[in-house]
Structures are given as C-alpha cells and as structure tokens.
Amino acid sequence: MIEKQIIERIQNAIDYIEEHLYEKIEIEDIAKITYMSLSSFYIVFSNVLGTTVKDYIRKRRLSLSAYDLVKSNMSILDIALKYQYCTYESYSRAFKKLFGISPKKYRNKNLYTNVFPRVNLTYQNLSGGINMINKEMNRDIIINKISSINSGFILDIDIDHFQQINEKYGYNIGDKVLIEVPERIKTVLNNYELDVDVTRINADEFVVIIKDKSKDFIEKISSEIINIMTKEFVFDEVTLSVTVSIGISKFTVDCNDEEVINSVKKAMILAKKSGRNRYKLLNY
C-alpha cells in the first residue's frame, strides 16, 4: 500500500521538476525533498506515475518544446538549448524518438497537442493505495473553458484498450499512439475550420469543447473522429488497430462545472459498455 504522505512527497517532486524544467536537474536533489533514498525514490516514483522520473522529465521537456515549435518563431537550436539539449542533433534525436518525426517536420505539420502535460496527484479517499490515486491532467483548463462558454458540447474521447496496447507493444508504442490519436482528432476539427484544442485529461482520455454548434453537427464530428481511427496505426515495423469511445454532453452557462465533467464521463463509460468504438450523448 502507498500511503497518502508518500503521494504528497511525490507531488512535491513533480512540483520541483516543473519549476526547473528549463534548468539542469539532478535526480539526487529531487530525492532529497521527498526524504527518500535515491533508490527508494526511483522505485516509488515509477510505481505512482507509471514512468521513470527521467522519462517524466524528458517527455515534459519535449512536449513543451513541441509547443514552441508550433507556436513560436524560435529557431530549433534555440528551442533545443532552452530545454537543456546541448546540440541540435541531440535534441532532434530525442524528439524523433518520442514523436516519430524530426522537429522541423513537426513544425511544418502544425498540429500541436500537449500530449504529455503536467500531472497532479489527487485522492479518491484518504486511505491511500495505488488504486485510490487520481493522476489529473489539465483539469483547471477544462473547467475554465466550460465556465467561459454560454453553451456548447464537451466530448470525452477515450482510447479503447489502451493498457493492452502498452502491455502488448510496450510503452514506446503507447506513447506514439497518444501522439497520433489527438493529431487525427485535430485533423477532423481542422477540416471544419474549428479552432479548438484537444486536451489530454487522463492516461488515455482527451477532451474537446465545441461551442455554437448543433447536436447533429456534434454527432457528425464524433462519427468522423471514430472513422478516422479506422486507418491502421503504423510505427516503424509495428502495425496496430486503435479505436476510441466518445462521451458527449451538452452544457450551458447555468450548469455546474463538476457535474458537466461527471456527465460527459458517464456518457463515455456508457459508450464503452455499449461495445466501444462508438459515441454516446447525454444532455446534462
């Protein structure tokens, strides 16, 4: 069992990492603030986050660098240096290993999603235990978007059997699926000239919020998102099929933000229970 106090220490480690992503980070310094030995810290961090501390740092830096590639005019070398890569070449190799394409091609593709956002640990209750830990991502962003819109639809897009993908093909392939799924979602949105973010909120879930559109339009978009996933995912010598289940909920300015999130989550679960690879719409 992992106690609540240990989780708080790991959250302190995450906070430290986030504050120093643009600087050199020594793992020993992170371990010190958790009051753990280096070896214990490595083990506990991996158990809680499902990834090593070095991988967490690497993915966060590369994800932020991807934002700069698409949203800024910085040179690729300057971006590399900003995220602690000493040379263009070392940055390009690391970026291509994670994203599957070079930084230059990623910039030209112009389809950014924050696939590896900051993780915030919360609890379903105070008893602890690994199953009681929520690894939240971008919850504040979603709530702010809901609060700023008079009426709209929220889509919760969940990758079906994602853990099985990790187990069968490895986490490197799982990461590439996490990168390509929102790119395909973004392609559908761009086809309709919708300037809408695709926001990762959990291990295998992405949220899209669309305002000023009809129910029929939202259902059409959802069907196209499901259909675009039917093309096989190909990563080097690995070819696999991926499907998604989509929960949809309508909301207005009078709705409670938390209840909107709960409603769309319920819709997504109903889509999965109905057989997956489909959408389910609930009116909050």
Score class of each variant (00 low, 15 high):
I173E: 07
R58Q: 14
D78M: 05
I149F: 02
N110Q: 10
M229Y: 04
S214T: 14
I165P: 02
Q84Y: 06
I143F: 07
I101A: 05
D68P: 06
E18T: 02
R93D: 10
I209W: 03
Y112N: 02
K211E: 11
M268I: 04
N166L: 09
N110Y: 05
L21N: 03
N73L: 10
Y67M: 07
I154Y: 01
L121D: 03
N125C: 09
T51L: 15
E8L: 14
F233Q: 10
M36T: 08
N172H: 14
T252S: 15
S127T: 09
H20M: 03
I130W: 06
I101T: 12
S39H: 04
I10H: 00
M132L: 13
C255L: 01
A271G: 08
K109N: 13
G170R: 09
D204A: 15
G170P: 03
L77I: 13
D257I: 01
T230N: 15
S46D: 10
N202R: 08
L81S: 09
D204E: 15
I209E: 02
S222C: 12
D29N: 14
D29V: 03
D158I: 00
V264I: 12
V198K: 00
L21Y: 04
Y22I: 08
S214A: 05
T87V: 09
M229H: 04
K266N: 10
N12R: 13
V198N: 04
I33Q: 08
Y123M: 14
N190C: 08
K168C: 09
Y106S: 00
M1E: 12
